[in-house]
Design a protein around this nucleic acid. Structure first.
Lengths: 229, 229
DNA sequence: TAGCGTTATCTACCATGCAAGAGAGTTTAG
DNA sequence: CTAAACTCTCTTGCATGGTAGATAACGCTA
């Protein structure tokens, strides 16, 4: 939603001075440099970016619309930390979005994207065998993103990006997907999804994808529950 | 997404001076007073609302993040008109969101909301028999909204609201759902959804809902295609 | 007459300054 | 010692003015 004309569209036209400030601010928030519900001061950001407070304010309002920060009037702006309930809900939405994406890919029969997916799976298996959990986690994210991108569905992509941005704060959680016992099963589920897509079985692909998401979410959830409460 | 702390949350606390401007501006855009890709001038709006251009600008940036307007740098702000492809895509996302909502309602077994749904269906049937297409269209919208609200799912509600806002410009299209031949079948589909929810058949409810959405979307689509191109 | 260069005006953009609310710290009364 | 009231400082909120870029109208030239 936030890239309606700014983020990605302008990059390809190389309009550098158009809106890099919003992107830089978003990255700053998503990077996790600001601990949790930490305050982000307009004045400090203005000094940081060598601009006046006005454009900073405008960008923060946009980030608020994206659900990344919370602006308390006359008090300050704070990095938004989704509640436990919200995280669960976001994974539920993530599930149906990715399910739709997989189904659409199967319906289209996107061959070149399929090869990318299989390369990704091969690399994932390699990383899993080598115990390279960091690379593995990155490849898993890439797999899901490839599914979404492969669906060639703009609105789906927008909603998905919004969701992932709001979930970005939980990168620490998602990195726990690189759990030793989980990895081989996850790879198998990825394979099943790709097989369904290759077979052009839209419904099968959708449900394989949804089952994969809900399974991994459950395991991550219990993992996280055991960890901090 | 846009009501993270503004729209609904502040209303119940009765903080009128907090952010009515964004809401008023949003309503102004959604009302359709501005034809299509019409320009909305900061200066004019500032005069209209008796404020300076600065808060107007901030609100417009938020509306841009919500996908309702498009800001062309150094040129102007225009009400965004979704392309045909985007409309189709939005209905696809609408389908899975409402499917998820119906499934969740079935899983929860929300009894009070079920009665509201059945009242709605009764009223819809009355309106259909009386040929009151305006009331009928309103009730259909209310039915879908009741499903979403009944799911008691915050994030789902946010994504759904974003979607419906962007689709609001096509109210003229959605009013064509009150087509004489379509109405009785639509009511029957509503009944089936409610029956599935009452039977606590989550999967059945989800697919009944999705089938209903995709069916009505197809009929509306062909209707609209016949109308203007 | 058609095409191009020029200018004039309209737009958003951003910097600055002032004002008002919220919150914390302090002081004072009980 | 506790609690309430007060003040002080920090924050955002908003108004205003100057600036730069984009667009369209106009005049010039071929």
């Amino acid at each position: 939603m936030q890239e309606s004309l700014g983020t990605a569209a302008s990059a390809e036209v190389l309009q550098l001075p158009v809106a890099p400030l919003l992107d830089r601010l978003r990255e700053l928030v998503l990077s996790g440099d600001y601990p949790a519900g930490a305050a982000v001061s307009e004045t400090l950001l203005a000094q940081e970016f060598n601009v006046s407070r006005t454009p900073i304010r405008e960008a923060l309002k946009q980030l608020q619309a994206e659900g990344l920060v919370e602006i308390r009037p006359k008090v300050g702006t704070f990095v938004r930390e989704p509640s436990r309930r919200e995280v669960v809900e976001m994974f539920q939405v993530k599930e149906i979005l990715e399910g739709l994406a997989a189904g659409l890919m199967a319906r289209r029969g996107a061959v070149p994207q399929l090869e990318l997916l299989e390369e990704n799976i091969e690399a994932s298996e390699m990383a899993a065998q080598n115990g390279d959990s960091e690379t593995y986690a990155r490849l898993v994210h890439e797999f899901h993103q490839l599914i979404v991108d492969g669906s060639d569905h703009l609105k789906l992509g927008e909603h998905y990006r919004t969701l992932m941005n709001q979930l970005a704060y939980h990168r620490l959680v998602t990195t726990s997907i690189a759990h030793p016992g989980r990895m081989p099963r996850s790879v198998a589920e990825h394979r099943k999804v790709v097989a369904m897509i290759r077979a052009k079985d839209a419904m099968g692909a959708e449900w394989a994808m949804r089952d994969h998401v809900v399974t991994s979410a459950r395991e991550v959830s219990t993992e996280h529950t055991n960890a901090d409460g």
